[in-house]
Each structure stands twice: as C-alpha cells, then as structure tokens.
Design a protein around this nucleic acid. Structure first.
Length: 426
RNA sequence: GGAGGAGUGGCAGAGCGGUUGAAUGCACUGGUCUUGAAAACCAGCAUACUCGAGAGGGUAUCGGGGGUUCGAAUCCCUCCUCCUCCGCCA
C-alpha cells in the first residue's frame, strides 16, 4: 500500500506510474479523490480535537467544583458537555468513515513501477532481460514429458495424490522423493552460504499476517482458509518470514537483513485449466525455498541484483537452460515496483516454465507491515522489502526430468549427487 | 478441553474514578566533575495523528475492541495473549 504522504508529495510520479500500468483517466480520478478525502480527514481531525479539548477542560472544572461543594455549577457544566458531545460524536463517526474510505481506496492503488519497467499490457510484452545463449536441448522423438517419466520411474504418483487429497497434490516417492529432498537441501545450503539465516516458520498464518504482506484482501481466493480457526495456509514462505518484521523498528546498522526459508506452499489456483496444470506445471501444493531481504532504501536495487545473481547461480549449478525476464508494467504484480522472472526450459514440453520471481517492493509492503528503521537523525523511515524464489521445486523437478532423460535413465546434476546419493534415476 | 491468575513506557514495577502520559528503579542520551574512566550529581528520554513558518499547542494511546461516567490505566462486557493446576497428546 502506498502511503497517502507519498501520493501527495509525489502525485505526478504516482500518476505516471499508474498510466504506465494502463490506468484510464477515469481510474486515475481515484488519486485526486484520495487526496481530497485526506484533506477532509485532517479538517475533521482538527475540529474534533478542539471539541475534545473543550470537554477535557470542562471535566476538570467539574471535578474541582464538586470538590469545593458547588454542585449546582457543576451540574450546569455537565449539560454543556452533553451538548458538545453530541457534536463530537458525529465528528468521530465521520472521522472513522473517512479513515476507512481512505484505507479502502489506497488498497486499490498498486505500486508505482520502477522507471526501468518496460511498458506493456500482457506477459507477451515482458522484456527478455537475459536470454539463453547456448543451444536449447534437443530431444529425439521418443522423449517424454515429465509426467510420463514420473510414472515410468515411479517418482511421482499423481493419481495417489488425487485419491488422498484431490487433483494438484502430487505424491513423491522413492527416488522422486529423494530428489525433492536433495533440491531442498541444496537450495538451503546455497542460501546459507550466501548469508541468509534459515527460518522454519509456521505454515498457518492469521489474518493480520496475511494482511500485512498484502495477500489480504487482494488475493483472498488464492489461499486455503481454515474457517474454524480463522487461519490461512501460506501460499509462500514470504508471508510468515516477512512478518517477522511486522511492527518492528530496526536500527540502520541492522541492514541488510537476509532470511531464507523452505516451506510447502499452498495455492488454490482457482480457474486454472488445460495444459498449464498438467503434471507439475501448476499444483496446489509445492515446495519452495524463498529468500527475503530487508534493505535500506538507498541500497535496495543493489540488493535486487544480488538476489538475481544468487538465483542465476543456482540454475547454472543445476545446468538448466534459463532466461531472465523483466516484467512489463502490464504483467507486474500489484505490490511490486520491479520484478525479474526466471524461466527454465522444459525440453520435452518445449516450454519455458517460471521457476522464480524476484521483486523489490520498495516501501509498498513495509507500509502495511509498519516495518521501519531509524536513520542517522533518529527519524523513523520505512524500509524496503524484497523477496524471490530460490527456487520453486515442482517445476525445477519437471525440467530436470525432461532435460536430463537418456536411454539409460535420468541423469542427476553433479551438484546434487552428494544430496541424492545416486547419479542416475532408473 | 476444564479451573484459576495476569497483561502498565526499552526492561522491572507503582497506581485501582478526577492536574496520571502515567511514581520509583534500571537502561539510554547530554552535561558537571576527572589526566582518562568509573562513581556521584544535574538535565533529558514513548508513539501516532493534528494545528503552527517556528517556538510551541491540541488530541488519542496503560494487550485489542466496545460500554458506563461530566471525567477511566482504574468500573462493566467481549476478544486475544501469557502463567499455574487438572485432563488429553506427538
């Protein structure tokens, strides 16, 4: 959520950003409206404060009148207070309504895209920031997609997952489970080596938490919800991990804060269908290692590049063909200022699969989180938050299986063999 | 799940209807003293909103929300969290 202060001070920049995101003149009216609402809020505040101040001083007077036995005068003042209270009560209601209205309007305004974000209307306009320079793996006609390979080598049982839970909940077994665990260990070790502190967070979060990172109210339908306990299953480790710093004021020399966590991620993915959801391409439960950084505003774009280099390093070590996209304004997430997506080539499907998304949210998230730091002057300022997948497992598994299939079996990248304890799936 | 108890400033801990935004101690910051440090002494030290060019003023906040009252940290209701005992349990 943008701050109302930022919208007022940087109105032109905000409007430019929204136009880049494709907002119409009609939609842009919300910016002026929210500023007007805030002006009204402040006027009401001033008026209300004056009345409350009056009530407070009269109350003190009443107290001393009672003490000195002047009950009549005191009672007269009581009636006066009652009159003022009628007005102040109205103002209070108006004030609450205004605040609620401002809040709900602000929730509809997305983050301002970074200037480097290319203008565009859909994913087709995303900029290939770094293309794959080598040859893409060419498989012969007998090559199989990962869901067939998974069955052939008894790695993943989609039917059993469906039996136990429902579609989109794969069951990994044998070497498939082992490969999964190897990847988790590898990614966590790499993150630790890069200075990230490992976190194992709760997988269920409360409403405040989901609200603070922006899953609520924007993506309510995307999360599994436990009605009885009023809790949500996390769609990503970002949610609990970033919320460690909700309502926290850190000191300037605590930067940078680097956290990582492996969790299963649960997504309802309502409305998805077709080849997109085939096999591991889109599932309701998958494992992901997330990296999160909390950065000084002056440093956050450096940090973003550092995180991209980290993800890139993982893909290189896994020997997977990948490319990096810079998301265009039309495909950029609501909360993000700049996002780079990583896609891995899945040779049998002949498809690029998204395996990571690395974003700088600037202060958009920290505003809701109330995550601040004290600067040199002791002033509190909002910190910048960033996160990225490093990496999302299911699709990595899919492309590993497809790209590394050979007549003898599926080759395991060297970097993983110390984790899997086998170098060939057969 | 049942029965009790408790939630006050960075921490500890008073206050239990009326100049209490909140005693006191510790911590912290500045100063005096000292060759330096410690000790001692003096002063300062919450957050948010708001008015004001500024100085400074106002309002709200004693776990969250609501209520009683002219007036609430103090009384009532409700929710949350923590502690103790019992039960259940990986």
């Amino acid at each position: 959520m943008l701050t109302i202060q930022a919208i007022k001070v940087e109105k032109e920049r905000v409007i430019k950003g929204l136009v880049k995101r494709g907002w119409s003149d009609e939609q842009l009216k919300i910016v002026g409206k929210v500023i007007e609402l805030d002006d009204a809020r402040r006027r009401t505040q001033t008026e209300l404060d004056q009345l409350l101040s009056e009530i407070n001083s009269i109350s003190k007077e009443i107290g001393s009148l009672f003490k000195s036995g002047k009950a009549d005068e005191a009672n007269a003042l009581k009636r006066k207070v009652a009159d003022i209270k009628a007005t102040s009560g109205e103002l209070e209601t108006r004030q609450k309504d205004l605040k609620r209205e401002i809040e709900s309007q602000l929730l509809n305004i997305p983050n301002v895209p970074h200037e480097s974000v290319p203008k565009g209307s859909s994913e087709d306009d995303n900029e290939v920031y770094q293309s794959w320079s080598g040859d893409l793996p060419q498989l012969d006609a007998s090559a199989q997609p990962h869901w067939d390979l998974a069955r052939k080598y008894n790695l993943i049982d989609f039917e059993l997952g469906t039996k136990i839970t429902g579609s989109g909940f794969p069951l990994y077994r044998g070497q498939g489970a082992r490969l999964q665990r190897a990847l988790i260990g590898f990614f966590l070790d790499e993150a630790a080596a890069a200075g990230y502190e490992e976190i194992i967070p709760p997988l269920l979060v409360n409403e405040s938490t989901a609200r603070a990172t922006g899953q609520l109210p924007d993506k309510e339908g995307q999360m599994y919800y436990m009605e009885k306990d009023d809790l949500y299953l996390i769609p990503t480790a970002e949610v609990p991990v970033t919320n460690i710093y909700r309502d926290v004021i850190i000191s300037e020399n605590d930067f940078p804060i680097k956290l990582t966590g492996h969790t299963p991620c649960f997504r309802r993915e309502a409305g998805s269908y077709g080849s997109d959801v085939k096999g591991l391409n889109r599932v309701h439960q998958f494992d992901k290692i997330e990296i999160v950084q909390i950065a000084h505003p002056d440093k956050s774009y450096e940090v973003l590049m550092e995180m991209i280099a980290h993800v890139e390093g993982l893909l290189k070590k896994l020997e997977l063909p990948y490319r990096i996209l810079r998301l265009c304004s039309g495909d950029l997430g609501f909360t993000s200022a700049l996002t780079y997506d990583f896609e891995v080539y899945s040779a049998a499907q002949k498809k690029w699969l998204e395996v990571s998304s690395v974003s700088n949210f600037e202060t958009f998230q920290s505003n809701r989180l109330k995550l601040r730091y004290k600067d040199g002057q002791g002033k509190k300022r909002l910190a910048h938050t960033l996160n990225g997948s490093a990496l999302a497992l299911a699709r990595i598994v899919a492309s590993l299986l497809e790209n590394n299939q050979t007549p003898e079996g599926i080759k395991i990248p060297e970097v993983l063999t110390s984790y899997t304890r086998f170098d060939l799936i057969k």
